[in-house]
Every structure is written in structure tokens, then in C-alpha cells.
Design a protein around this nucleic acid. Structure first.
Lengths: 219, 219
DNA sequence: CTGCAACTTTGCACAACCTGCAACAATTTC
DNA sequence: GAAATTGTTGCAGGTTGTGCAAAGTTGCAG
């Protein structure tokens, strides 16, 4: 793992080896997703995917930890420190919206390959079974996200106890994720991959959220 | 499948056969959950569970469709027509809370055996892997729940388009589920199995929800 | 009580998922 | 071009889950 010269520090400079590996992985994912569209998720075996991708089944498992991981992608939304700092400091929108916006960005960033991203959404949207696995997978990180929100809450509402911050963190994550999920379908309808429209859709959702959580709406 | 006399109509009268089957299933579930507490979820195989429950592995799969189904329970929250009618007509609380209350009741009703219910919660709470599967499993029914909410919305907000009702239904379900999940842990701390406290906890959550979704809270 | 009919349990074979290991192949480095 | 590093593959084996048919149980009618 010799550090190549890295003229600009920190840019890992992709060697020939790494590039081939990345391409092989992408090819495999595409193969899996295409097969799902053709035969349905339940009828797609690892052997079929490996076959189409031109690798051995054993290599498939070197690339991905499971069949689902290949279809859903191995990278999960992971906001970096800059995004987190911006989220914590943000003042112009509600806590839930601030978090939702950050997650929307992290989500889009989690798959640099836009074609793969869209293909995956299509397959997930048409496969309830796979959608369930996906939701479960993302939910694994809820506690970690909630801790992030708690950091913002500690700054903005110093009077809250730690227990309250944890509770509200959990709640914020659940609502924000729900909001993103609710508009994701609408977002994919557009031919645009930017997160701008997604953020706008989320933003427009909040008047609805407030009405739906209000005891006696003014009709 | 002879209809027994059924003096009171509709009460299925459990025969000896059915009772034994139900008990064997419960024994199997308990065995699985206990083994999870003892050895950790990842180390528990179907063979071990079947062994402790005194049945063959093959019979295990006659009872449950998968290892997870045995641990998480086969019954999912399923509100009956009365509960749905009450939900749709309810006027004293917000849409989200009305739905959350109904789901809390349906959830509690989905497992009549309280001991099993609590044991299961303990295992799920200490096993992120299993919790993820559980969330995914419940999420499978989201669309169906959203349709339920849409029915209420159609009554209360006649001016909404069908698309809007679908969107807000999805949103309502996500928020309500998140709210229940957020207070479930706190609820289980109590030694009480009634849904009353759960409903109260959910109710008290709404001021927080409203603050977290408000653009510029009054600090 | 007896035997028949219906249902349940079980074993067995089999396909698919996934992992560890060791041999083999390709690439990078010197 | 040889050595070291890293990626690929086959193979054995454990686990999940399913179909099928044989064997065992239970309920019921005569």
C-alpha cells in the first residue's frame, strides 16, 4: 500500500488495478439489477449474476458480502464532517428538515454512478421484498444518525436532558427518513439527478407534516 | 375442518388438536428467543431451536416460514374493521396520532401471549441485526397502511387530490411508526403491558414533533 | 373397540446462500 | 525478469429453506 506521490494531498489516485476492480464490481451490480428486471428478484441466483458478469460465484462473494449487498449497493449514506457541521449550525429550517436535507445529500453521494443509482431505484421500487431489506439495512444506522441529531439539539436546546435529546434524535431521524422515502418516488419520476429538486420536494412537505400532526386543523 | 357446533356463532372453539399445535409453536418461539439470549442471534441455528423445542427441523419449517419468522412472530399488526372505523372517525387528535394509537393497539393485539411479547422485545432490542429485519418486515405493509390513512384523509380533507392523499398517507405512516418506535423502549421499561401508557407516551411526543418540524421555534 | 379418513410429523433429497482455505494467476515492484 | 503483493478460482462444508412421500396421530363413525 505504497502512497503514490499524491501531488495534491489526499487524492488517492486510482491505479490500473483499482480501476479494473471498481469496474468489475459495477458490471456485477448492473448484471444483477438487469436480471432482476428480466426475471424478477426471486428468480435471480448468485450463479446467474456471476455468469453474466463474467466472474466466478466465489469472486462475487469477494466483492459483496451477500446477494442483497450487490443489488442494494454496499455504500450506505454517510455524511462527512463538513456536512455534519453545516447541519448542526443550520438555522433557516426546522431540525427535521435540516437533517432530511443532509441525508438526501449523503444518499445521493453514496452512489457516484448515476446510472447505477437510477437502475437500482427502479428495481427496488418494483420489488417489495427488496425494498423491505433495504429499509432494514438503512435502519441499522438509525442509532448513529440519532446521535448526530442529538448533537444539534444539544446546541439549540440546551435545556433538554440527554434522555430527551436521544428521544428527539430518534424521532427526528424517523420523520426525516419517512419524508425522504415519501417523496423519493416522485423525485425519480423526473429525469434530473440533482438533489435540488429532492430538497425542494422535502421542503414542500413540511406544511403537510404540520397539518397532519396538528390536533384540530383549521380544516 | 368440521364446523363444531359453535353455540355462540363465530367463536372457533379450540379443539385438542389446535391447542397442542398452538402450544408447540409457542414453545418453539420461546426456545428460539432463549437461545438468542444465551448464545447471541448469530450463533443460533434452526437445528438448535428445533432440538430444544423437541421437534424436528422439518417441523420447524412447517410452523414458521423462516428462522426470523419464528423469532419475530408470524402475526403482524393488523387492525380490524372496528379499529379502522374508529380511526377514520376520530376527531380529538391529529391524523398522525390517531393512526399511531390504532397501530399501537394493533401491535399489542398481534401477540396475545404477553410473556412471549416481552421476551421478544428484549431479544430484538439487544440484537441490531434482528431489529433491522423486523423493521423491514413491518415496512412491507406500509403501502397497505398508507391506503388506510388515505381513507381518513379523503373524509377530512376532501379537497386533496388522490396523489396528495397517497403522499400524506405514506408520510403519516412513517411518522407514526417512528413515534411508536421512539417510545417503545421507554414503554418496555415499565412492568405494565397495557397500551394505555404507550398511548400516553405517544401523545406526549407530539409537542416535540411540532417543535422539531417548526422552521423557527420560539427557542 | 375398530377401522377409516384426515391431518401432522418426519426423513430424505436437493437447490441456494455463504465462508474458509489453499492453489493458481495477474500485477506491481525492485 | 524475479520476487512480492494482490486478486481469482475451485472445493469442501455448514446453514437455510422446500418438495415429496412414508410413517405416525388424532378424530370420528359404525
Amino acid at each position: 500500500m505504497h502512497d503514490v506521490q499524491n501531488t495534491e494531498e489526499c487524492v488517492p489516485v486510482e491505479g490500473r488495478r483499482e480501476r479494473k476492480l471498481r469496474e468489475a464490481k459495477a458490471t456485477t451490480q448492473r448484471a444483477g439489477l438487469e436480471l432482476c428486471l428480466e426475471h424478477g428478484y426471486g428468480a435471480v441466483t448468485v450463479e446467474m449474476i456471476a455468469d453474466r458478469a463474467g466472474i466466478s460465484p466465489r469472486t462475487f462473494y469477494n466483492y459483496f458480502s451477500s446477494r442483497e449487498a450487490a443489488l442494494l449497493g454496499d455504500g450506505k449514506p454517510q455524511p462527512d464532517e463538513d456536512m455534519i457541521a453545516a447541519f448542526i449550525a443550520r438555522e433557516d429550517v426546522s431540525d427535521v428538515e435540516a437533517f432530511a436535507v443532509m441525508m438526501a445529500e449523503a444518499w445521493a453521494k453514496s452512489e457516484p454512478d448515476r446510472e447505477l443509482f437510477r437502475l437500482r431505484r427502479r428495481v427496488i421500487d418494483t420489488t417489495p421484498e427488496l425494498a423491505a431489506v433495504n429499509i432494514g439495512r438503512i435502519a441499522e444506522d438509525r442509532a448513529q444518525y440519532a446521535a448526530l441529531v442529538a448533537r444539534r439539539l444539544a446546541v439549540r436546546y440546551p435545556h433538554l436532558t440527554e434522555t430527551e435529546r436521544e428521544l428527539e434524535g430518534t424521532l427526528t431521524v424517523a420523520i426525516a427518513m419517512g419524508a425522504i422515502q415519501a417523496v423519493a418516488k416522485e423525485w425519480m419520476r423526473g429525469d434530473d439527478d440533482q438533489t435540488g429538486p429532492l430538497k425542494a420536494l422535502v421542503h414542500d412537505l413540511f406544511p403537510r407534516v404540520r397539518r397532519l400532526t396538528q390536533a384540530t386543523p383549521a380544516s
